[in-house]
């Protein structure tokens, strides 16, 4: 009994120890990003390419999910609001839910799945096939070329994708309302605009920069530190999605608390 307890304690100790080491390494990686990002030369061309790949190439996915978010939210909320005779609040409720919470979190999760896994697999594959080493021995800074550009691109593109998803979600909401009724588009939009204030948009947009930064950071960290062997490429991609998704929820929770405190 005592022996089992000791073994379990040792396992817990090892796990905690490894977890702290991992957090330390990730922090070091994050600090290196800021150091390398401000130091010239800058890889503008690669940054633009990554913005295109991460932003533009994610548009179809974000369009579909954004539209469905708005549509489903409207259809699901309508009966409850109708029960209280508050059906006319539907446009405001849908817009506020989308902008404050649903669009940022769902879009970030979709991007964690698509972008973080893509970055993790790409860098992981480059690591195991010695392409990153090849850059280093050619006196090219692989961290600056591969990591800095990708993290910057996700930090810039995720907020834009979320704003786009907000818009598409509102369109989806309009379609949802018109399945069971007939609401004029001008009236719908004016109700939406009237209900949204700066304090709804500002904190929600700020948190999306953090979502973007962490999606890029985690994807790059997992890929860049993949150990030798093709198996580690899959592990890096998988681990990037899981960690990035979890981090999005943690950031969202912190962001809600901070918003409550200051706004």
């Amino acid at each position: 009994m005592n022996q089992t307890l000791t073994i379990q304690k040792e396992r817990l100790g090892t796990y905690l120890n490894q977890s702290f080491i991992e957090v330390g390494r990730a922090t070091e990686f994050a600090i290196r990003f800021f150091k390398e990002a401000i130091r010239p030369p800058y890889e503008f061309k690669e940054l633009l390419k990554q913005c295109y790949l991460i932003g533009y190439k994610s548009l179809p996915l974000v369009t579909i999910t954004g539209f469905i978010m708005g549509l489903v939210l409207t259809l699901q909320s309508r009966p409850t609001l109708a029960e209280f005779g508050a059906e006319s609040w539907l446009p405001s409720m849908v817009a506020l839910s989308l902008i404050r919470e649903i669009a940022p979190v769902i879009t970030a999760l979709i991007c964690a799945g698509k972008v973080a896994s893509g970055i993790g697999a790409e860098l992981g594959s480059m690591k195991v096939t010695e392409q990153i080493d090849a850059m280093e021995v050619s006196a090219i800074n692989p961290f600056k070329y591969l990591v800095v550009t990708r993290i910057m691109a996700t930090t810039l593109m995720i907020p834009l994708l979320v704003i786009y998803a907000d818009g598409i979600g509102i369109v989806g909401g309009y379609m949802g309302i018109n399945i069971h009724g007939d609401v004029n588009v001008v009236r719908y939009l004016s109700q939406v605009i009237e209900s949204i204030t700066f304090l709804d948009i500002f904190p929600a947009t700020i948190k999306t920069f953090f979502f973007g930064y962490f999606i890029g950071m985690i994807g790059c960290y997992k890929g860049y530190n993949a150990e030798n062997g093709t198996e580690s490429v899959g592990k890096a991609a998988n681990s990037a999605v899981v960690t990035a998704s979890l981090t999005i929820f943690i950031i969202d929770m912190i962001a809600v608390q901070v918003t409550d405190l200051f706004f």
């Binding site: 790409e122 480059m126 010695e130 392409q131 080493d133 090849a134 850059m135 021995v137 050619s138 006196a139």
Partner: peptide, 27 residues
């Protein structure tokens, strides 16, 4: 110093997202 040393990796380690021209001009 590294610019004065060439290194041929066992599997060549070509950048697989770039063409041969880009692999060479990149450096």
């Amino acid at each position: 110093i590294r610019t004065r040393i060439g290194f041929l990796f066992q599997n060549a380690a070509l950048y697989d997202s770039m063409s041969v021209r880009e692999n060479l001009s990149f450096t």
